[in-house]
Computed example of a mutant assay.
Amino acid sequence: MGIVFRETLAGVELEQLSGGFFDGWPNPPSASTFLKMLEQSYAIELAVDEQTGNVVGFIQAISDGILSAYIPLLEVLPDYKAQGIGSALVQRMLERLQGLYMIDLLCDPEVQTFYERQAMQKATGMCIRHYSNQAGYIDSRQRN
């Protein structure tokens, strides 16, 4: 399986994103919401299966572009795990963000060792999760 990496959505169609991301989420975003989320990110990295053209992994960052960035999501489809794709996506993103002072993410304890292998350090964080908005929040002011 040949994997190519892309840092833009150029040439990626909606149907190439609907391959089973957000596995286990009780209220996952639709493919169109997923696309919009990627479009509005500060930076993205995509892993694409050369044979099928489907996106099989992604990482996104949101940032002020000056001082800080936050990496909210990294996902690799189950059939493509354990091939180094997640590590490559993280390294590509960290390289793109290296000029910033801080790059943060929150993750579950069971994946902390993965991020430690990517040269990240454990830290303490706080969060709020509105699971009812997990499919994507549309601000009524943005609907017009």
Rank of each mutant, 00 (worst) to 15 (best):
M1Y: 01
M1L: 11
G2K: 07
G2Y: 07
G2W: 02
V4Y: 04
F5R: 00
F5E: 00
R6N: 10
R6Q: 08
E7C: 01
T8Q: 04
A10P: 01
V12F: 01
E13Y: 04
E13K: 05
L14D: 07
E15R: 02
E15Q: 06
L17C: 13
S18W: 00
S18H: 01
G19A: 13
G20F: 03
G20T: 06
F21D: 12
D23R: 09
G24A: 13
W25S: 14
W25D: 12
S30E: 05
A31I: 05
L35E: 02
L35Q: 15
L35M: 07
L35F: 03
L35I: 02
M37G: 14
E39A: 12
E39T: 05
S41W: 01
Y42W: 15
E45H: 10
E45A: 10
V48T: 06
Q51H: 03
Q51R: 12
T52Q: 03
N54T: 01
V55I: 12
V56G: 08
V56I: 14
G57A: 09
G57H: 14
G57V: 03
F58Q: 03
I59G: 12
A61H: 01
I66C: 04
I66L: 13
I66D: 08
S68N: 15
A69Q: 01
I71M: 14
P72I: 09
P72L: 00
L73R: 15
L74F: 02
E75H: 05
L77M: 11
L77E: 11
P78W: 00
P78Q: 11
D79R: 05
D79M: 05
A82H: 13
I85Q: 14
S87W: 06
S87Q: 13
L89F: 02
V90N: 00
Q91E: 07
R92M: 09
L94I: 07
E95Y: 08
E95D: 11
E95A: 13
E95K: 12
G99I: 03
Y101W: 02
Y101H: 08
M102F: 11
D104F: 06
D104A: 09
L106P: 04
L106W: 09
D108I: 06
D108A: 08
V111C: 10
Q112I: 10
T113Q: 14
A119Q: 15
Q121T: 02
Q121K: 13
K122N: 07
K122F: 01
A123R: 12
G125R: 08
I128T: 01
I128Q: 06
H130I: 15
H130P: 00
H130W: 11
Y131K: 06
S132R: 06
N133M: 04
N133L: 08
Q134C: 00
A135R: 14
A135D: 08
A135E: 02
G136V: 13
G136M: 10
I138S: 14
D139S: 08
R143D: 07
R143W: 05
N144S: 08
N144W: 07
